[in-house]
Design a binder for these strands. Structure first.
Lengths: 119, 119
DNA sequence: CTATGCAGTTACTTTTCCGTTCCTACTTTA
DNA sequence: TAAAGTAGGAACGGAAAAGTAACTGCATAG
């Protein structure tokens, strides 16, 4: 019994964007352009290697980002947004704008400093 | 040390939409119009009373939905989207469209039947 | 007089996620 | 020779999220 009927493929996509880091990674890649693993890790302060790897793999699996590995020693791996990732970005921008407006209206003020900053 | 700097208020809003049921609830409310608690529960098959209550409270707290309680016996409680909820809906529609396209391209096919349906 | 529906609340249990830590194999630098 | 950087992988463990179940009080239906 499918709990989430096919009418709502949005669920899959939201599940993709959901994690605390995912949108931030996309944001960095679209804002700073393609980045190497280490640079990305430094650009997303606080993320663990494990999480970064996992998110990148997932986004790559969904075709949202590409991965380019140079067979040098040590290997240099770069990540960047694909066209699909850019599709996503326009929506995230729209959402960001709404979030911005809501912030002005104090929607998130009530939970301010709350748990959602931890981790 | 704020892990998610203020540049990204999107994080708060995504945290709101994140849960497995949240977007589905919004979808139902925007598709079928305002609903009473029981009807909503039946419209989102598989959700538990507890989850539904929690999500509704959260969405209400964010001003995305309204709650109207008639002091009859038994009490009749209705929920519906606010204008803020409708803001959200346009974005969700855009996202849904992207998800729809991706589905056609088989993006989610690889994980098909996987754990993400068991929620 | 028992069952059922309304709209939840509370407690308990399970699952899942996520962070932390240690490890790889290789090269350059001190 | 030891340390550090590169790009991760594997194992462990705690906390948070989510599911399950039982309970509320009142009214109507059987």
């Amino acid at each position: 019994m499918p709990k989430v009927p096919p009418q709502c493929p949005m669920d899959s996509i939201l599940r993709l964007l959901m994690g605390p880091w995912t949108t931030y990674i996309i944001w960095v890649l679209s804002d700073q352009g393609p980045q190497r693993f280490g640079a990305l890790k430094r650009a997303v302060p606080g993320i663990s290697t494990r999480m970064l790897t996992e998110r990148l793999r997932m986004l790559q699996g969904a075709g949202v980002i590409w991965r380019e590995q140079a067979e040098t020693i040590p290997p240099a791996v770069s990540y960047g947004l694909t066209s699909r990732g850019n599709d996503l970005r326009s929506v995230l921008d729209a959402l960001g704008e709404i979030a911005h407006n809501w912030e002005h209206e104090g929607v998130f003020a009530g939970e301010g400093g709350g748990r959602h900053e931890g981790q």
